[in-house]
Write a protein that binds this DNA or RNA. Structure first.
Lengths: 356, 356
DNA sequence: TTGTAGGCGTTATCAC
DNA sequence: GTGATAACGCCTACAA
């Protein structure tokens, strides 16, 4: 059984060879307040005063002490300090893909909110890999006071590696997880999007889904619900998987979907990157966008305004998503109940541009 | 005078009200190993053994202790642990703009390299603000063992807030800084780019520069040197400033440059975002790219392949940049001299696409 | 102005 | 197997 507290790390690598001089290459033990005190011929307390700009100290001794400190390249140990002055909070942030512009923007929101609270944020890129997610948690369960992030692993696995650290998972409904959650109201968003396409006369609408074909996520479910509600001649055979959440992934998925459903007149992309990929494949095949094929994205990346034609998309306030996550986890870490109302839920907004 | 060691922070906010019960809302003192020991009726040492999966312990007591630990929501203090087990390294990463895809990719490189070393990385977005840079350093000088980042502040100001933490600055030549440095060989890159434009017949080439007009950086200097070398009828009046390093900034700057130098047949953008902005303004004014106006970028963002026409650019291995920075700062923190050769220098590669 | 004593929470060491 | 004892490096309180 895996103990959630155990530090199964391969830390400790600093050899204790104590070079007395601060210079010299090779690993040397860092100078402590004691070393400084000794060399300066004062008590540790005096060093502390000098180093911390406390008042009660003779300017002369202060200067002397500071001089020695500099000489020894002394820096207070953050561990010792943290032990005695409370209040330094570290949050861990797990992101699946730094190369998708969506996540840096979420991160920006997280950083903002964390900064306001005086927290620092440690970032980990899981590369959408379950094992790497757990590695992150193994670290964070020891090194962080709170965790926020995107996870593929199921709750129980996460919990096992979390060791009780307050956690908020992103884009998993509050009812779908036992952790704090901040989600996107995919249903509301997708409904808007499909309604827009239908309004424009489309009936044969496909989807490029980022979720595994055997594990439909909220976006696909919302899509299927929407097309059904509008009575469209569309079923799950109109959904092609795009395991790679990237432009290239979208290109490939679109090719596949077009082969399966040539009668398509519109596609909904799991995210903007995939949607852009879809546009590219469509155009490469000689289809005009939006005339022959309308394309709808999901995310609202800045990128969408730069491609041609500009991408119609369901815009998400990514920064807010990040901020909310921090607020949630802050609640958790003070023992409050997580929010589950509108404060934990961001609703996509349809942004109509040229592609649909 | 600002003491580099002083913790001029407004930390400490945790009120010491010790709720004995683990549950209950409101701030409660976190349970310590002592609390667990007491409630479980064993010594702290035994708790430590249980929690750390050490061998020498009776399975029964272990289970009991773990149970209590769970009950009390006990998590070992990372500070106390860090004090006694050495080896947990934290690096601070200062980025100027998370919204520019360039930097997340640099960050990805930093994270990779840091992970390989078992380091964790705390990220700070300075938003290209000198004051925020210093805020970051004030934090990192206490909380980090190494710092890597982009800075506008001059060396001496940085040093003042760094308190001796090993530091590597990005994109500042080794001879331009007293810190460790990892740079881009702008001269080599720009030379390739301008040569390409000249080869295509361009002689009236402008530049959209991201640096302040009164503080030319390496890219502008390289540009000016290159056009001079090719004997082009171009001087610094062909350089328009684009203080915003964004698409919008590039659009505005391009408008300005086009007004000043309508005879332009090609532009070099400080970065890809600016270059894309330039393309947009050009096309909005009815100019065809590249026929009427060729556009050359600098960065090699993925984005450049998606715009129309695709952007010709000087591609930088951003991930490598990040990795090198970590390697450099790792050297510094073990007392070695920083690298200054090719290992600390990334050379842009011309990628020819449709825009030039 | 300066020094001494004690404790922050954890683990290593060495007894029992 | 389990428990004292002594660090780890720093800071707060109090004494000199």
């Amino acid at each position: 059984m895996h103990s959630v507290w155990a530090d199964n790390a391969d830390d400790q690598e600093r050899e204790p060879r104590a070079g007395q001089a601060p210079r010299g290459d090779g690993i040397r033990r860092r100078a402590t307040i004691h070393d400084v005190a000794q060399l300066a011929g004062v008590s540790r307390q005096t060093v502390s005063r000098a180093v911390n700009d406390k008042g009660e100290i003779d300017p002369a001794t202060k200067e002397r002490v500071l001089e020695v400190a500099r000489l020894l390249d002394y820096r207070p140990s953050r561990f010792a300090r943290g032990l005695v002055r409370k209040g330094a909070v570290t949050a861990g942030l797990v992101l699946p893909d730094l190369m998708n512009p969506f996540f840096p923007e979420v991160a920006a929101g997280v950083l903002e909110a964390a900064e306001e609270r005086g927290w620092q944020v440690v970032v980990w890129d899981s590369r959408t890999d379950e094992n790497r997610e757990l590695q992150a948690l193994d670290k964070f369960s020891h090194q962080a006071d709170a965790v926020v992030g995107y996870f593929k692993n199921p709750d129980d696995v996460l919990a096992q590696h979390l060791g009780g650290v307050p956690t908020v998972v992103l884009e998993r409904g509050p009812h779908q997880t036992r952790f704090g959650a901040v989600g996107i109201d995919a249903a509301a968003g997708v409904a808007q999007g499909i309604a827009h396409l239908v309004r424009a006369g489309h009936r044969r609408i496909g989807m490029l889904d980022g979720d595994r074909i055997d594990a439909p996520g909220p976006r696909r479910e919302a899509f299927l619900a929407a097309v059904r509600q509008h009575g469209l001649p569309v079923d799950s055979s109109w959904v092609a998987p795009s395991p790679e959440h990237s432009v290239a992934g979208g290109e490939a998925a679109m090719a596949q979907l077009l082969d399966a459903r040539p009668e398509l007149t519109a596609v909904f992309g799991f995210n903007d990157l995939i949607a852009v990929g879809a546009m590219r494949t469509a155009r490469r095949r000689g289809l005009r966008v939006p005339d022959d094929l309308a394309v709808l994205g999901f995310d609202g990346l800045a990128l969408g305004e730069l491609v041609e034609p500009a991408l119609t998309t369901l815009h998400i306030d990514k920064r807010r998503l990040g901020r909310l996550a921090v607020e949630q986890v802050a609640r958790l870490s003070t023992g409050q109940e997580p929010l589950t109302g509108a404060e934990a839920w961001v609703i996509p907004q349809l942004v109509v541009r040229a592609s649909a």
